[in-house]
């Protein structure tokens, strides 16, 4: 087991490794570093409050560096190599902890919402009523009323109508 700092902190190299891990695990070409860095800080913050997760995170990140060949450590790997290291440790508790926290923090980020094309809070702006709730124009505008043509919805297919004399439990 590698030495683990006892001051409760994750050092700068480990934070860099965590950011690299997040980018490899959640690869979005459009995302700058900001969302990944904020997510890393959220994970580190969450680990601070929990000795077990803190130890696991610190040890796990050190292990990642150990698995990465070359001088740059995990943060120096290209995306394919980083992904392949992560696949090897998919079930490691520290990676599970990271994923559980990351999937909340990364996608609850205002910049990410904008990058993904999500409009977010709308009530204060009058909803989307006058801001594009129906602006899709590559399909025709469909009927909104219920069908009133000649067909009837057959609630029970003819073959599934129970025999008229049958009662509960009969002719199953």
């Amino acid at each position: 087991m590698p030495d683990t700092s006892t001051d409760g902190g994750v050092d700068a190299a480990q934070r860099r490794a965590l950011v690299a891990l997040l980018r490899a695990a959640y690869p979005h070409a459009r995302f700058p570093d900001g969302p990944y860095e904020r997510t890393a800080d959220a994970i580190i913050g969450q680990a601070q409050g929990d000795l077990w997760h803190r130890l696991q995170l610190s040890e796990g990140l050190a292990t990642l560096d150990g698995r990465a060949e070359g001088d740059g450590g995990f943060a120096g790997l290209d995306q394919a190599a980083a992904l392949s290291v992560l696949r090897e440790i998919e079930d490691a508790p520290f990676f599970r902890f990271i994923r559980a926290a990351a999937v909340v923090a990364l996608y609850d980020d205002a910049e990410v919402h904008e990058l993904l094309g999500y409009g977010g809070p709308s009530f204060e702006q009058g909803g989307y009523l006058h801001r594009g709730f129906d602006d899709l124009d590559w399909l025709p505008t469909p009927r909104v009323e219920e069908y009133d043509g000649p067909e009837q919805l057959v609630e029970v297919a003819p073959d599934d109508v129970p025999a008229p004399t049958s009662t509960q439990g009969a002719s199953a």
Binding site: L139, V144, E145
Partner: peptide
């Protein structure tokens, strides 16, 4: 009825294309 929003436009057009009738 409520008007068609974007998600409904895709949904209802798809329904119509595969022969569903009872959509709204």
């Amino acid at each position: 009825p409520l008007p068609a929003n974007n998600n409904y436009k895709v949904f209802a057009n798809g329904a119509e294309k595969i022969g569903y009738k009872f959509y709204a």
